[in-house]
Amino acid sequence: MNLASSELFELSVPERIRLVEHLWDSLAKDAEAVPLTDWQRRESDACLDGCRAAPEGGESWAQVKADILAG
Rank of each mutant, 00 (worst) to 15 (best):
G58D: 07
W24G: 08
W61K: 07
R16L: 15
S44C: 04
N2H: 09
A70F: 02
F9Y: 05
E59M: 09
V34I: 15
A46W: 04
A28L: 15
F9G: 07
F9C: 03
A70R: 12
E59L: 05
V20F: 09
P14L: 01
E10T: 15
S44Q: 12
A33P: 04
L69P: 04
E59G: 02
R42T: 13
V64W: 05
S60E: 10
G50R: 10
I17T: 14
D30C: 07
A4M: 10
S5G: 04
N2Q: 10
D67P: 02
S5A: 12
R18S: 11
A70D: 13
S5L: 12
L8M: 14
A54K: 10
S60R: 08
C47L: 14
A62P: 07
A46D: 15
A31M: 09
R16V: 12
L23P: 02
A28D: 11
L36A: 10
E15L: 01
E21F: 01
K29H: 06
D38M: 00
C51L: 14
L3W: 06
H22S: 13
E56P: 01
E59K: 12
D49I: 00
M1L: 14
D25Y: 03
R52G: 06
H22M: 12
K29A: 15
S12Y: 00
S26H: 05
C51V: 09
L48K: 10
A62L: 06
F9S: 07
L3E: 03
W39S: 13
W24P: 02
E32P: 01
A28E: 13
G57Y: 01
C47I: 14
S60T: 15
A46M: 08
W61I: 11
L48N: 08
F9A: 09
